[in-house]
């Protein structure tokens, strides 16, 4: 079966049940459901990230939380990769719990309804990394069912059949190798880009409220600081 960007329709068949097998060795990857050398898979993934609108990285809990020394190393590598992708965004998946009434699709992605984030932000190429396999499988299938997003799974274990590109046994070193190939492809395509970090999460406050002072209010500071002898009786 050729695993291509959707929308495939409601509840598509699982690629694994349609004869797609996981990459047979650590130096192999999957490209549209077929086993290829990982460099070839990386090149195609890089092309998608460089040419499709709104490329986004979805880091999962294994990258976001400092649960082991390798998490810090992989987090570093992911940020290095994000710097090199033009106009890339990072939208995290910090955990898997259901959210009521609804997530903020610009601030996070939830594996139970990933298409809210993908469709809201018009993402057409994305990377799943550091998401536990059972939830990655769930989300990747839903994305293939309902969107035209090109999915890339950078997996620390065996990979994911439902992604268009899968890299397996991918840790810090392999992520950096992917970054190098991406730079190479970018140069081949003639895309000019100065490495820079993606914009921060829009849900974070723009100011640091812990250190904010009266002077930060500029000409309106007088509204906060009563003048000497002034007693404010009427407040809003």
């Amino acid at each position: 079966m050729k695993v291509v960007p959707g929308p495939e329709g409601y509840i598509p068949k699982v690629a694994a049940m349609e004869g797609t097998n996981l990459p047979s060795s650590p130096d192999k990857g999957l490209l549209f459901g077929e086993e290829v050398d990982e460099e070839i898979a990386m090149r195609e993934a890089a092309k998608a990230l460089l040419t499709k609108p709104n490329p986004t990285i979805f880091p999962g809990p294994k990258i976001l939380w400092g649960w082991s020394p390798t998490a810090f190393e992989e987090a570093d590598a992911i940020l290095e990769l994000a710097k090199e992708i033009p106009n890339c965004r990072i939208i995290p998946m910090p955990d898997y719990r259901p959210k009521y009434p609804k997530i903020d699709p610009e601030a996070e992605i939830n594996p139970n309804h990933p298409n809210l984030t993908i469709l809201h932000n018009r993402i057409e190429a994305c990377i799943f990394v550091g998401v536990h396999c059972h939830y990655a499988n769930l989300s990747l299938r839903m994305i293939r069912a309902g969107t035209n997003c090109f999915t890339i799974a950078i997996c620390g274990e065996l990979g994911h059949e439902d992604a268009m590109v899968t890299l397996r046994d991918a840790h810090g070193e392999k992520i950096r190798k992917f970054k190098d190939i991406l730079i190479q492809v970018r140069n081949e395509l003639g895309i000019q880009w100065e490495p820079k970090l993606p914009p921060p999460n829009p849900s974070l406050p723009k100011e640091n409220w812990e250190t904010v002072s009266f002077h930060d209010y500029g000409e309106y500071a007088f509204l906060l600081m009563p003048k000497k002898g002034e007693i404010v009786t009427d407040t809003e």
């Binding site: 880091p59 976001l64 939380w65 400092g66 810090f72 570093d76 940020l79 601030a107 921060p200 849900s203």
Partner: peptide, 16 residues
């Protein structure tokens, strides 16, 4: 020991 955000990702986590 898990309740800490990896270096550099503090700016990308949702406010919650």
């Amino acid at each position: 020991e898990y309740v800490r955000i990896t270096t550099g990702f503090e700016d990308y986590m949702p406010k919650d």
